[in-house]
Write a protein that binds this DNA or RNA. Structure first.
Lengths: 216, 216, 216, 216
DNA sequence: TATGAATGAGTCTTCATTCAT
DNA sequence: TATGAATGAAGACTCATTCAT
């Protein structure tokens, strides 16, 4: 019933095995996100994946392990997305505000808005206590790598004379905070963020950030 | 630290009734916060409150209702805390940066750090789907009242010539975002925020905010 | 809220004790009738009686005993009602059909329609297995005494030449069956029997009975 | 005695599925009949059916639904039984009393004595309040169809000059009442009706009925 | 591999009953 | 005597997990 990504790319070799596994992971990500770990039932996941309960066990073991694999997968995907976006950071800008705004919008769209990433954060917060190792992986791949990477880019801009920054790490954290401001509020009040607002958010955040840190 | 209503009014009459109910609510708040709604067991709540399971049911009905009452109570308390702090906002500052930093620290401590408020936010996010009415109450009393209230104070400062703000509502959102920056990151990586860091956070957030919005 | 029979007769001496006990019994009769034994809760009975749960236990012991007392009381009352009506049986009738119809109507009204008696029958049927002794009492005071009593009256009428009956016991059973016909059907389809229909039922039953057994 | 649908169609394929469901329904009918709705436990039903509790839930959902299905099934079966017997009604009798007695005995045996039907009536009475829709179905298929059907047969006999009946509907009700007389009394006093007595009951009821309604 | 069934544990909820006040 | 609380035992229902087919 579902458009399996595996079915598109490959032809005959082990499509069932792979695609089933992926279907389960996708379904599990959804259900965990919607229900939380405790309230998510294996049956619901199996049903949404269109496979039998037993297949879930065969492919991914018990609930704890399934959860771990799901989180690991999303962590990885989310991290890859982030670094792909980061490559577009305007290290040598002509028009800093315009270019940084564009980058910000891309970052918001691909790395912050991303449902996967959002649910991941929530899940890790909620279930962090139950899965400490997971927590560690996530911390390492999430905040542990992303903030320093941004800080490095900002430092580069400062060195190049575009910004006036004393503490790049702090500036990076504040930059992200400003970016995510309205996204977070929307999430808190249960409101979907419409695609069109993302550009405004990027513009406003960048503007304020540059008012604070642009070299005058 | 807790203002017990019974302690105010009398000595001997009916302290158990009231205090039991309150003990249950406190215990429930803790357990819900730690475990989430689905994983929180009534038995655990009763045990932590030092009462019998039956007393929980007698006093507060079923799990759904218990949850609603807990959230309503925390919402109220948290809102009251916020507005008490808001009264100390430096509307006519002599030294804006110092006074706003002080206010920021107080706000962080009483209204943002506040465990009650934090868990409340998380719970409402996680269980919002299951309790839509709750969601509404929270939105109304939470973001719906707090951001406008801060925006109004910032607008006052702008009018008085201290700030250069075009959109007070946006500024308010960004101010809070900057304030909560490190708090949120700490929460995400499961790190307790030590008391001593709060002042630094307030200072850094205020500094950046003023770099962006102070009248030059 | 309820018109307590005890309150009518006496003034001050031990009205609480007696009336409370009676209130409990009345309430219990209602609740048992409506809910059945298993589904009837002591709390519901106590609440309906307007007394505390403990008082129920003090006055009437545990649930089993309460049930027994209720049934015994209704058995007795119902039996008394029946025999009071039986005294009006037309042993020496002038116009047999008219007089027997009148008696039948009275019997229907006082002894068959009587809610107490009806619920009693149902309860005894339903819970008979759980309370064999009760069953015995009821059998003895109910069918065990009533049918023979009616049979005796019918035999008297036969002896006096009004009826042509070979087996008075059988005739008694059939007489009651004919009387209760529509009442039972109404009960089965959950329809209240309106007061006005009772006379028609008595007339029809008596007519058929006499068509079968009247001396020609 | 039980017509198992599986037994008709095949030998090996999928007998478990169907037979398990049926086993549960049979067991549930028994337990509900013996204990009433409230006191019947799912575990008891599962145990008597020789299946696990979970299988009960898988096959038939919760207790309410299980009850509804059981009642619906018995209603249907009981109705079918009745109309099968009704086909043997002596519409053109040579010896009316003999033939009607035979029919009466058959009706008693198959349709009135039938444990299924009896328990059904009791259950519907007792739990009618909790399941109003059930009540309606039962009324429609039970009294709503059976009495008219009998009335029609009696009217036919009257037309053919065998009976002297003014109100066939009333006569039908009285006929059934006479038939069930002793059965009901036995049930009330908790006495099993021995097979041998059924003929006597049929004979006595028919005799009285004909004494009242036979054309002289 | 998929399916139905089984198992055993666990949670929510209600109840009867008893104690202390 | 009445009240609130406590206890212990069900019982409904769900779930994770495993077996057999």
């Amino acid at each position: 019933m579902k458009t399996s990504p595996a079915a598109v790319s490959s032809e005959t070799e082990s499509p069932p095995a792979t695609s089933k596994r992926q279907a389960i992971l996708d379904a599990a990500a959804d259900v965990f996100a919607e229900e939380g770990f405790a309230a998510a039932s294996i049956d619901a996941i199996a049903a949404r994946a269109g496979v039998s309960r037993q297949t879930v066990y065969n492919q991914l073991g018990d609930k704890d392990n399934l959860f771990k694999v799901v989180v690991a997968e999303i962590t990885e995907k989310s991290s890859a997305d982030f670094f792909r976006v980061l490559d577009t950071f305007p290290v040598a800008p002509i028009d800093l505000e315009t270019e940084l705004t564009e980058f910000s919008a891309l970052l918001l769209r691909k790395a912050v808005c991303d449902p996967n990433g959002r649910w991941l954060r929530k899940l890790v917060e909620t279930e962090g206590g139950r899965f400490p190792e997971l927590f560690e992986t996530w911390k390492e791949y999430g905040p542990g790598k992303k903030y320093p990477a941004i800080a490095a880019r900002l430092a580069q801009l400062a060195l190049a004379g575009h910004l006036d920054i004393e503490d790049p790490a702090l500036a990076a954290r504040q930059y992200v905070a400003l970016l995510a401001t309205d996204l977070r509020i929307n999430q808190q009040i249960g409101r979907q963020t419409p695609e069109e607002e993302v550009d405004r958010m990027a513009r406003e955040a960048t503007k304020t950030f540059l008012r604070a840190f642009a070299k005058r």
